[in-house]
Design a protein around this nucleic acid. Structure first.
Length: 301
RNA sequence: GCCGCGGUAGCUCAGUGGUAGAGCGCUUCUCUGAAAAAGAAGAGGUCGUCAGUUCAAUCCUGACCCGCGGCA
């Protein structure tokens, strides 16, 4: 029955961890040592001109190692998991064809899952007109509608989550069928390396990094995005740095508050990232480069 | 020293004569094309202290302590 054994599949290394944990550096080090190339898995670093705010690696930090899935779309446009999956799959293929080791590195867990677990999304692209229309209804109304049209999906969906309800109804309205059950077929032979940093230490790093990035011109970066035509609404939606700095630039809050709120939001975000990965048995949590190298070494043999 | 206002959850504050709530924060969790998104659940309080009135006080009365403002 077409069951592929692990040894027949391409080998892909995944480096994951919360924001500010040092993923990018680790991925570069591993790449240099094992002849690899990096595929970013970050839902904000895909956008052009969003460099400091998204914590993108600099040209210098890349140390000559090629990086994929950075700067692939204009921030005025929307990018989705599904877009990510397609482009990342292509990148894996390209790297493997060169005889190099693909290293997926990033903090967007959903993107990593889509790629590595081979999540099959229903082929229905977002219909913003429909979404805007459904947005006007209450959560209860949407849920009742879903119960009527697709009782099975209604059973396991988060009944109070408007975004998910709207997506489910969108799929039904386009396909005229119930939402298909999610399919997962891991296409690669994978090694998951997670960076294990104590939360307290991580939060210190987050704060220092925030100061540094402000000095490096993070506020200017947001201002110039706005000048390039990225709306305040869009910046709000992009979250964290872009959201809080946009609010500050509009004069809605003062500098101190913006910085304070941004700092707690980044910390909360890092906790959510942890929650996502906690309990995933596939991840090897490492403390240093040596442990990572040992893991990769035995993986590629 | 006097007068006024206040002291309720980690923070900002509602509120009631029958032992308490909100927002934010915190903890945990979910994840089907927005995922830095969108949601869910939970833990926190002898209601400043002591005494009195009352069947019953966080709420009424008194004293005291603390903070803020004004007058001296």
């Amino acid at each position: 029955m077409g069951i592929k054994r692990n040894k027949d599949k391409l080998k892909v290394v995944v480096v994951l961890g919360p924001t500010s944990s040092g993923k990018s550096d680790l991925a570069v080090e591993i790449s240099k040592k094992f002849n690899g190339e990096v595929i970013s898995a970050d839902s904000r670093q895909v956008y052009k001109k969003m460099d400091i705010g998204s914590g993108k690696v600099t040209e210098e930090e890349m140390q000559g190692v090629p990086h994929y899935l950075l700067d692939v779309v204009d921030p005025k446009k929307r990018f989705s998991v599904s877009d990510y999956k397609k482009l990342a799959e292509k990148a894996v293929k390209q790297i493997a064809e060169k005889g190099k080791l693909p290293i997926v590195c990033g903090g967007t867990a959903f993107y990593i899952k889509a790629l590595m677990d081979g999540v099959v999304f229903p082929k229905v692209s977002p219909d913003w007109t429909l979404r805007r229309r459904l947005e006007k209804k209450t959560t209860e109304e949407l849920y009742q509608e879903l119960e009527k049209k697709d009782p099975q999906r209604a059973e396991n969906i988060d009944s109070k989550n408007k975004v998910r309800l709207i997506r489910a109804l969108e799929i039904i309205s386009k396909t005229k069928k119930p939402v298909p059950k999610v399919k997962e077929e891991p296409p690669y032979n994978s090694l998951y390396i997670g960076i294990d940093v104590d939360q307290e230490e991580l939060e210190e790093r987050i704060e220092k990094r925030l100061d540094r990035r402000i000095e490096e011109g993070m506020i200017e970066e947001v201002r110039s995005l706005k000048e390039d035509g990225v709306s305040w609404e869009r910046l709000e939606e992009l979250g964290l740095e872009y959201r809080w700095i946009a609010r500050y630039l509009q004069g809605k809050i003062d500098y101190e508050e913006a910085k304070e709120r941004l700092s707690t939001d980044i910390k909360k975000f890092s906790k959510r990232q942890r929650t996502w990965w906690r309990g995933d048995e596939r991840i090897h949590w490492i403390k240093n480069l040596k442990e990572a190298e040992d893991l990769v070494n035995s993986f590629i043999k």
